[in-house]
């Protein structure tokens, strides 16, 4: 039981891939695999940021709004004939700044992350709709070229995604900062007692999440070629779902970027791609995706109940059986 819970994500992954592989021969091709990976890049990068947030037992509901806000402003700048690199730089700055606003309310004023980022979801989206006057904006050629560019034969979005995965993985596993995030997520009170600057740690994950949202927005725009009023919608849901599917716990302290986040994102993207290949009724997509997410969350809470039972305080020492 314990092992089943521990390896739930990879097991689920293999089951889903195998199911689609059996149902459709086209699914198990190199082309399709590459396609799924490239498609995964934007939501994957947002999910990397979300994984950092979830590790601290927080949540960031504002990532979709940050994406739209950054995209809307960049779109306006490009319409005003400003250069692409300035627009892209501005998007990243907006991402970090938005994360900073979240961080200030959460880490300094100690307001629940759920509330702060939910407010940002609506306010950020509202501001962006005002800026774009709720109209779709087409983006210049140059933006689209980012999406189709290849470096050494590897599609640029995939390259960026891969680099982000490696950097995030190294940060979480090999730096004091990363390890301290795990400690904070496990028990914030103990973390403070251990001399960690818990406010700073908490603030930084929202900055990271804001940055990742903006970078994800850039890659997504490069695939879409336009900013629509629905841009970034439901990304918070997808990112949380992918992170949890990859083994991150909503209760904090548990989760990895490699293989976790990668696995979760590719899993969600595979389901969508598989359903397209199978020509499934589009109305089925959300139901099937939701069912898979439900299973993942169920496993997460099952894992936690089990851990809680194992860690229950003992009054006496009985031999393990009895």
């Amino acid at each position: 039981m314990n092992a089943l819970l521990r390896y739930a994500s990879p097991i689920l992954f293999v089951v889903v891939i195998a199911t689609f592989g059996v149902l459709s021969p086209k699914f198990m091709t190199a082309d399709n695999a590459l396609n799924i990976l490239v498609q995964s890049a934007p939501v994957g990068i947002v999910t990397i940021g979300m994984t950092f947030v979830l590790l601290t037992a927080s949540v960031d509901l504002s990532v979709g709004a940050i994406m739209f806000l950054a995209a809307g402003i960049a779109g306006k700048m490009l319409q005003a004939d400003m250069s692409l690199s300035v627009a892209l730089g501005t998007m990243l700055v907006i991402g970090v700044a938005s994360g900073g606003i979240n961080a200030a309310f959460i880490a300094r004023l100690r307001i629940a992350p759920f509330v702060v980022t939910l407010a940002f979801l609506f306010i950020g989206r509202g501001v962006a709709l005002t800026i774009t006057q709720t109209r779709a904006m087409n983006l210049p050629e140059g933006f689209l070229r980012l999406g189709s560019a290849r470096i050494g034969g590897v599609p640029l979005p995939l390259l960026i995604f891969g680099m982000m995965l490696l950097i995030a993985h190294a940060t979480l596993t090999r730096t004091p900062f990363g390890r301290q995030l795990y400690a904070l997520g496990h028990n914030p009170v103990t973390a403070r007692k251990a001399g960690l600057n818990t406010s700073l740690l908490l603030a930084s994950v929202f900055l990271i999440s804001g940055f990742c949202a903006a970078l994800g927005a850039i890659l997504s725009l490069a695939q879409l070629g336009a900013v629509s009023p629905k841009f970034g919608e439901a990304y918070e849901f997808k990112a949380i779902a992918a992170a949890v599917l990859g083994g991150a716990s909503l209760f904090g302290g548990r989760g990895t970027v490699l293989p976790g986040t990668l696995l979760g994102v590719v899993l969600i993207q595979s389901v969508e791609a598989g359903l397209v290949i199978l020509n499934a009724d589009p109305y089925l997509y959300p139901i099937i995706t939701a069912a898979i997410i439900f299973i993942a969350v169920l496993i997460d809470s099952g894992r936690n109940t089990l851990l809680e039972r194992l860690n229950r305080r003992r009054i006496r020492n009985d031999s393990a059986q009895a």
């Binding site: 390890r179 795990y182 400690a183 997520g185 496990h186 028990n187 103990t190 973390a191 007692k193 251990a194 302290g253 548990r254 860690n311």
Partner: peptide, 10 residues
Amino acid sequence: NLFANLSIAE
């Protein structure tokens, strides 16, 4: 006051 999700060294 230990972090169960970290190693002894950490």
